[in-house]
Structure formats: structure tokens, C-alpha cells
Amino acid sequence: MKKSTLLPAIATAAVGATAVAAVAMAGILAKRRRVHVTCKPFYREATRCFKIPGLNDGFVPQDLFYLDDEKTWLFSGYQANRKPSPIFQVREDGTVLRHEVLLPDGSLYRGHGAAITAAGPLVFLTVRDGFVALDRATLAAADDGETLRAIGHRTVPLMPAFMNVQKDMLYIGEFQHRGLYPTPKSHWLRCPSGETNTALVYAYAPHAHGPFGFGEHPAAVYSIPGNVQGLCVTPDGNIVLSLSWGLGDAEVRVYDPAHAHRGGSYLVEGHHCPLYFLDDATLVQTLTVPPMAEGIDEHDGQVYLANESASNLYLLGKFYDGGYVYSFPES
């Protein structure tokens, strides 16, 4: 009988797969040890609050926002399995509600879920060219699994990667990474402190007759560095940015806009907007945080941070408690 080569081939493949898995696990454990060393000040000061929803069901979180009146956290993101992108509510008692969103054209939302925030009676969710608005009361009353319909859409003159309503101002900004996520060269600005910032934030002031309660044009433009994933504003007016890319340690940077250099004006759709630089000259604090930090929000004097690393798409964060929201003081 001819000797079969099938079993040895299977055995060789199994050994190879085991070796690859062992190498991957060794890399993960090494990364876990390094994160706990480099992020030691963060873990010492931060409070582990509650689990991020949907991580074991394909959800990749991108942002969070606290609804004060409802005492509810909102989460936006996308589904790694290409299903419609959900939003989540996490209530004060720990109840988790999952919703899909119908866009104004009637299609299910399948976007990146880069940011979610709220102002007055509306909740805003980013789309590729701006954001859509949901009725806040309808969302608050919705049951788990109920689909929500967007009631309007606003375009903005940049591709939104993060968004937040803080101190009645709507901030919406873009993400830049060399090569993979370019921004227009007109957004690359030389800072007074010498470095070049490669992205912009537009800040819209309240306006009773403007789109969704905000002005037609930005009240201010901020020049910011690349790799920014989220923005919030502290009670004393400092602007906080979260920056991350890939598996490297992420950062939370605190800037003092009161000392931001006025750089003349920046032209946005024919309108001259005051321009300010968030650069080394206005940087007051940098905190190293675990990899894949995403959206941030300010609530009750604390900065809250979401992270995508413990999603099933990336897994890494499952080895260093990346599946939790953390809060920490600004300074």
C-alpha cells in the first residue's frame, strides 16, 4: 500500500499554526507588560468605570458622550462584520440598549460611527460628510433593539473624525495620518512654536436660527496635530485631545486655549474665521494612555476615555483591561 502523505502534512501544518499562535501570544503578553509600565501613571490616577458595550459582538467603539438629564452614556462605532453600525445607551443602572439608525434617505447607517454628541433636543451622529440628527426624547424612550430614524442631515467642509458639544459650542474635527489618511495641504499650518499642525477643528457657536441650533459658519478654527481621535473641554476651559495610531501607546494632551496664539483668520467657505493654534506653546500636560484610545468626554470634572483595543477586531485590549471606560482628572 502506498504510504499516505496526508497525515504528516496535516501534522506539519498544525505545528506551524501552533508556532504562529505561540509567537502572537508572546507578542501580546510582551505588549501587555509594556503597557502596564509605560502607562503606570495613567493606571495610578484613573478610575475603571464600566464595561464598553458590544465588544464581543463585533462592535468597534469610536466615541462616547454623557447625557446629563438622562444620566446615560451614548456610544457610537461600527461593526467589524459589516452589519449596520449601532449606537448604544448605557444607563445609570447598567442597562445596555442597542439601536440601529435609519438615515434620512431610509437606508440603514453603516458608517464609521466616528462621533456622537448632543445639544438641546437633538443627538448628533457623524456621517462621511457631516452629521445626522436624531430626536433626543425618542432615543431616551426607545426600547432595546428599536431602530431610530434620523430627522435631518448637515454637511460640514471637512471629513469629521470626532465631534463634541461642550460649553454650548459644537466642535468638529478631522483625523490626519501620513499616507493613509491625508488632509488637504491647506490644512497644514506652521505653528508659532515651530512645528507643523496637519489638521483642523471647526468650532460652531450657538445660533437660534442656524442649522440644528448652531451657526452656519465656524466661530473659530483650531489648528491641531495629526492622529487626533477625540476632543473635550474641561470646566476651566482647557481643550483636551486624545491621540492614537496603531498599537503604539496613545496620548491625552491638554492645551490652554486662553494662551493660544491668534494666527489671523482662516477662510472657510468664503467666511473669515479666527484661527488659533494648539501647539507646543499652549500644551500644559501630556498623559500616556493605553493603545487605541478613541473618543473622550468631560463629565463632572473628569475626562472619560473610550478605547477600541478590546473589540474582537483587535483583541489586544482584552489583555490589559481595554474593555472598560476610564475616567481621570484633567491634572
Rank of each mutant, 00 (worst) to 15 (best):
Y78M: 01
S244G: 04
P53W: 08
Y324P: 01
L315F: 13
A115D: 01
H99L: 02
L180C: 10
P211S: 05
S327F: 06
L125V: 04
G270T: 04
R262T: 15
G120V: 01
L247Y: 11
S309W: 06
E330Q: 10
V284Q: 14
V201E: 09
D279Q: 06
E195M: 08
L247T: 12
T5Q: 14
H187C: 03
T196P: 10
Q166T: 15
A260N: 07
A11T: 13
A203L: 07
P192C: 12
G27V: 03
K83H: 13
Q89C: 09
R253I: 07
Y266D: 04
W188H: 15
T126Y: 02
V233E: 04
R34W: 14
G111D: 03
H153A: 01
A142I: 07
G58I: 03
E298I: 12
Y181I: 04
N56K: 14
S193H: 09
Q176W: 13
E251H: 10
S193T: 05
I28W: 12
V90C: 11
E294Q: 10
D279T: 10
P104M: 03
L148S: 05
P225E: 14
A293M: 08
L158H: 01
G179Q: 09
S244Q: 08
D69Q: 10
S186E: 14
H187Y: 08
T286Q: 07
D63V: 00
A118I: 03
V37A: 14
T282H: 07
S311L: 03
V221A: 02
H99V: 00
L64Y: 05
D249F: 15
T47V: 07
K318W: 08
K51W: 10
A205G: 11
V201A: 09
A114E: 06
L122A: 01
L231A: 00
L313W: 13
F42K: 07
G295C: 05
A203G: 07
K2I: 15
L74I: 04
L6S: 09
R253V: 13
A24I: 13
T126L: 01
E146F: 09
L6Q: 08
G27W: 11
L283R: 00
G111W: 02
F42Y: 06
H177Q: 15
V37L: 12
L122M: 05
D321E: 13
A13F: 11
R82D: 12
W73C: 02
G264A: 05
A293V: 04
A205E: 14
L125I: 00
A161W: 11
Y314M: 11
L267R: 09
I296H: 06
N197Y: 04
G106S: 06
Y304M: 00
R33K: 14
N227K: 11
G295W: 06
C232Q: 05
P157W: 02
A203W: 06
L158C: 02
P184V: 02
N81M: 03
T196V: 15
N307S: 10
F59M: 01
F277L: 01
C191S: 15
V228I: 12
L267W: 09
F131T: 03
D69W: 06
D129Q: 01
Y66F: 10
A13V: 10
E70M: 09
H207W: 15
E195C: 05
R262Q: 12
T234W: 05
G323H: 01
E216W: 03
H272V: 04
Y320F: 15
R33F: 15
A250H: 07
Y266W: 08
P329F: 07
C191M: 15
E45W: 09
L7M: 12
S265W: 14
Q229N: 12
A21Y: 13
Y255M: 00
